[in-house]
Lab assay of single mutants.
Amino acid sequence: KKYKIKVYVKDKKTKKWKKIKEIEVDTKEEALEAIKKLPPNYEVKIVP
């Protein structure tokens, strides 16, 4: 079972969220580790 991490950042001009990358991992633990490495201003969604 794979997890997709969708990473969004808020556009300063439009104030809208835009997706900047998608990370695919195998476990939820890996997903949480990957999220920890991202800057705090990123919004993250984990999709099972």
Score class of each variant (00 low, 15 high):
K45S: 07
Y3L: 06
T14F: 04
Y3G: 00
W17P: 01
Y3T: 02
K15C: 12
I5E: 00
W17Q: 01
E33K: 08
K19I: 09
Y3V: 04
T14Y: 04
I5K: 01
E43W: 15
K36L: 10
E22T: 10
K2C: 08
E30F: 03
E43G: 15
T14I: 03
K15N: 12
Y3E: 00
K2F: 09
P39Q: 07
D11R: 05
V7E: 00
D26S: 14
I46E: 01
V44D: 01
P39D: 10
K36D: 07
V9E: 07
I20V: 14
A31L: 13
K28Q: 12
N41K: 12
E24T: 11
Y8Q: 00
E29V: 07
E29D: 10
K18M: 09
Y42C: 08
E43I: 15
A31P: 00
L32F: 13
K13W: 09
K45L: 15
W17H: 02
V7K: 00
K28E: 08
V9K: 15
A34M: 15
D11P: 02
V7F: 07
L32S: 06
K10M: 13
I35T: 04
K16C: 10
N41W: 12
V9L: 10
W17R: 03
V47W: 12
W17K: 03
P48I: 15
K6T: 13
K2E: 04
V9W: 06
L32D: 09
L32M: 13
K18Y: 13
K28S: 07
V9P: 00
K18Q: 07
K45Q: 11
T14P: 01
I5D: 00
V25M: 05
K12R: 09
P39V: 05
K2H: 12
P40A: 12
K15T: 04
K18S: 05
E33L: 11
L38A: 03
W17E: 00
V44Q: 02
D11G: 04
L32C: 14
K15A: 08
K18H: 09
E33S: 09
V47N: 05
Y8E: 00
V9R: 14
P48Q: 14
K19F: 14
I35M: 08
K4Y: 08
K18E: 04
W17N: 01
E29K: 08
T14A: 05
K1M: 14
K6R: 09
I20G: 01
A31Y: 07
I35G: 02
L32G: 04
Y8L: 02
I5N: 00
P39R: 10
E43P: 05
V47F: 12
K19T: 03
K1Y: 13
V25N: 00
K6H: 14
K6M: 14
A31N: 00
K10L: 10
K45G: 03
K28V: 14
K4I: 13
E24H: 13
L38D: 00
K1G: 13
Y42D: 02
V25R: 02
